[in-house]
Design a protein around this nucleic acid. Structure first.
Lengths: 141, 141
DNA sequence: TCCAGATAGCTATTGACTATAGCAAAACCG
DNA sequence: CGGTTTTGCTATAGTCAATAGCTATCTGGA
């Protein structure tokens, strides 16, 4: 109905709006996670290995789309913060395991994440909300 | 119903899926624009100043969310490719204007973009498609 | 008219993140 | 066994955005 004239011709392009929305949301999440000194990728690792003690660096990278080489500084950071430890599985592989402190931080991450996701969904009109995830999933191979 | 077990606990998080979808789509668009040696930000500038001859660097940056400082190398690149020129508006400001070659390239950009947006929407199930843009718009302030 | 403050364009630098190549050691498998 | 693959890592380079600061110019109110 009463559309504010956005005078931005790109606002009609789904790809452009998708990128804008993702950027805005990730900036918001990064800001919230900053309160406990974690980056988004840090938090996603913690969430992924929650309740597990058998995932290797390589496996985590495959799931999260982070290359092996780039997992190293990330895990070093988490290890330096004493949130995870590296535990040998055999003489080559090692499991990434939460420390007790890591488990505490995981709780905070889950709390922040849960609130963030709820706030995100709350911004979407009721009629559109059920269609949000299916639409996005369809875009991911 | 029959959900394929993705064994990725993050797949249930809207924010995470949003980021993944945006990344996948932007990688696809970047690849297509690479065929005419343009980056996504290059193309968005061309699309924005299409049919106008009065937008300054600062104004373009405000609309596209690109900081003044970062507009400089971007416009230098487009100018070096002879797609735009800088035309003085007064002794301080200058309009960014498409060259004839820029207008030709703009046509290619519009063609690629149009096809990309169509392909993107085509991947979304019919039932969800009408809800895609409204949902995303709601996430952008 | 004049001056303070805002604005435009730019330089230079930095940090975050990602991508690539390569390596040694270990594991895997026919 | 022995060739191939995998794992974790180093080192490096490229992309991109953010910050601070500078000069010249424009603008609006006293």
């Amino acid at each position: 109905m009463s559309d504010v004239p956005s005078n931005d011709p790109l606002a009609a392009l789904p790809g452009y709006v998708l990128r804008r929305a993702a950027n805005a949301m990730m900036a918001e999440l990064a800001s919230r996670l900053g309160a406990i000194d974690l980056k988004i990728s840090d938090a996603s690792v913690l969430l992924l290995i929650a309740g597990r003690d058998d995932m290797t660096s390589s496996e985590i990278g495959k799931v999260l789309d982070i290359q092996r080489a780039n997992m190293v500084p990330l895990l070093n950071r988490l290890e330096a913060a004493e949130l995870i430890t590296r535990q040998p599985l055999d003489r080559k592989s090692q499991a990434i395991v939460l420390t007790p402190e890591g488990r505490t931080t995981l709780g905070e991450v889950q709390s922040i994440t849960h609130q963030f996701e709820a706030d995100l969904l709350a911004r979407i009109p009721d009629a559109d909300r059920p269609h949000f995830m299916p639409a996005l999933r369809a875009l991911i191979d």
